[in-house]
């Protein structure tokens, strides 16, 4: 069931939406902000608010890279794998992060602390190689600075 705060936020979006369906991405983003991901149950609840079927809404949700349809860890590490970061050392950096956390892309650490995902160009090409942890951007990231970065996220 959606929380009161989620309902309130989604209704605020619906209040100015030209059509209910046009609030779909906003509504999914709201649920994800509160729950970390979008479960099947949440999908059904949101769909009914938007006069959509859960499948229609899921078709929208799964189109996007950052609507999570599976649970993620408390923090999500996004590693930019696009061209400038590739040139500036993406491969060794990724190896370092994988070894440190013991997980591959798409996986979550056992303590549910981190999920590791690739992301397309972060628009931080002057700071390559770049990563994002939750909403924070870091770059250039080296094996040495990785320690300090991960420490901030418990």
């Amino acid at each position: 069931m959606l929380s009161d705060k989620e309902l309130q936020d989604i209704n605020a979006e619906l209040a100015h939406a030209a059509t209910k369906a046009s609030a779909s991405v906003d509504a999914l983003n709201i649920v994800q902000r509160h729950q970390g991901w979008v479960s099947d149950e949440a999908m059904k609840d949101v769909a009914s608010m938007l006069d959509m079927t859960a499948d229609e809404l899921d078709a929208v949700a799964t189109f996007y890279s950052f609507i999570f349809r599976r649970p993620v860890g408390r923090h999500v590490i996004l590693v930019c794998d696009s061209i400038s970061c590739y040139v500036m050392g993406y491969n060794p950096l990724l190896d370092n992060i994988k070894n440190r956390l013991g997980i591959a892309f798409g996986e979550t650490t056992e303590d549910k602390r981190f999920t590791l995902l690739p992301i397309s160009c972060l628009g931080a090409c002057d700071r390559a190689p770049a990563i994002m942890v939750d909403e924070d951007l870091y770059g250039p990231v080296t094996a040495e600075t990785m320690d300090g970065i991960l420490e901030k996220y418990k």
């Binding site: 059509t19 369906a21 046009s22 609030a23 779909s24 991405v25 906003d26 999914l28 983003n29 938007l50 078709a59 929208v60 949700a61 189109f63 996007y64 890279s65 950052f66 609507i67 992301i119 397309s120």
Partner: peptide, 23 residues
């Protein structure tokens, strides 16, 4: 409008579908 992340949204007609809440 905050997107949910997909390169094709930069194509202007795809962007309009995104704003309408469609794929």
């Amino acid at each position: 409008h905050g997107s949910a992340g997909r390169y094709i949204c930069g194509e202007e007609t795809a962007l309009l579908n995104a704003l309408e809440g469609k794929r």
